[in-house]
Each structure stands twice: as structure tokens, then as C-alpha cells.
């Protein structure tokens, strides 16, 4: 008895085309700065990567014309945004909503993998370490972005909420409620 899969929203084509026009160097610089702030606030994430803390991960949102190369670099991460192919030790591909949903604990990685919403290739152990480390970190990318926005925090948060509403992509973490 085969079962229904989770429905993952696909990033709308119009905004996807706009994101494809991003200037890569400043976008990479911003993402690297962002990831280093996360590293500072969540050091256990990099400890949990263990021997895979120097692997090179290719994160491929299949509904965007961009790929991201993440090098945790032992806690001093570097992120590069590229158009087209990128070589790495491991590749994780799927809709942007699936990738961000995993970060925010909205989806289960194994369930997305078995339903083939997510594709992994390369070093499976490194992928598993990254998945587990991120799941344990309980990240909220919207809160992280807000924290580095200084006086612009409020408008940034409003923009993120609007983006979440229009694209269906989980851009923030929804806190679990206590059952008792």
C-alpha cells in the first residue's frame, strides 16, 4: 500500500528569473557573512559535522537558476553562488522550499528523500552529518537575518513574511507548541 507524498511548493517562475539576475560576487559575499554569523551563534552545528566539517557541499535548488556551494571550513564557512554546475564532495538537490523546510524543521529529510523530492549524490556520510547538524541547530533564518539587519530589522522581517506568504517557502522556523 503506497502512500501519498508531502506536497512541496515550487518557487514561482517570475521571482525565480529575478533571482537569476543577482550579481554573484556581492550575493556570495553577503551569504558568506550571513553563514559566519550563524556559525558564531550556533557553534554546535559545526562540532556536529565532525570529520565532515571540511567537506564541500553543493546545494542545488532545482526551481532556481542558481546553485550554492557551501564550505563549512571547520566553523569559518564560505558560501559561493554560481550559475550552472559546481563540483563538490556531495550534492543535495530539491525545490528551494524543501531545502529551506529542512533547515526550519518543517519537513523530514528521509521522507523527502524516499518520495524523491530530494536527491543526494556523492559522499552520503557528509550529507547525513550536515542534515543531522542542521536539524539539531533549530535555525531560524528569518531571525538570523533580522539579527544582522540592525535598525532595518522590522522592515526586513516584514519583507520575509511577505516572501513567505507569496512563495509558500518556509523562510522562518515555526516554534513547536507544547502538547501539555
Amino acid at each position: 500500500m503506497h502512500q501519498e507524498s508531502v506536497v512541496i511548493p515550487i518557487f514561482p517562475k517570475g521571482p525565480s528569473r529575478v533571482l537569476g539576475l543577482l550579481p554573484l560576487a556581492p550575493a556570495s559575499w553577503t551569504l558568506t557573512r550571513f553563514s559566519r554569523q550563524i556559525a558564531k551563534r550556533h557553534p554546535s552545528l559545526f562540532r556536529r559535522l565532525g570529520e565532515h566539517a571540511h567537506a564541500r557541499f553543493v546545494l542545488d535548488p532545482t526551481d532556481l537558476p542558481l546553485v550554492m556551494c557551501l564550505e563549512p571550513n571547520g566553523g569559518v564557512p564560505r558560501v559561493s553562488l554560481l550559475r550552472g554546475q559546481c563540483q563538490g564532495d556531495a550534492r543535495i538537490a530539491g525545490p528551494l522550499a524543501a531545502l529551506l523546510g529542512l533547515v526550519h524543521g518543517a519537513y523530514d529529510g528521509d521522507a523527502l528523500f524516499f518520495s524523491r523530492d530530494l536527491v543526494i549524490e556523492g559522499d552520503t556520510a557528509a550529507v547525513l552529518a550536515l542534515r543531522n547538524a542542521i536539524d539539531d541547530a533549530e535555525l531560524d533564518l528569518a531571525a538570523e537575518l533580522g539579527a544582522m539587519s540592525g535598525p532595518l530589522r522590522q522592515p526586513v522581517q516584514r519583507l520575509i513574511a511577505l516572501g513567505e506568504k507569496t512563495t509558500g517557502v518556509a523562510l522562518s522556523r515555526h516554534e513547536e507548541e507544547y502538547a501539555r
Binding site: 519537513y107 523530514d108 528521509d110 502538547a179
Partner: peptide, 16 residues
């Protein structure tokens, strides 16, 4: 134990 916190929360809530 190898599954995510999302799995854990959903399954536990259901069985509880």
C-alpha cells in the same frame, strides 16, 4: 533515532 525532529514531533503527537 536517525530521523528528524519534524518526524519525531509528528509521530509522537499522533501516537499520544
Amino acid at each position: 533515532r536517525q530521523r528528524s525532529r519534524s518526524y519525531v514531533a509528528q509521530v509522537v503527537r499522533n501516537f499520544r
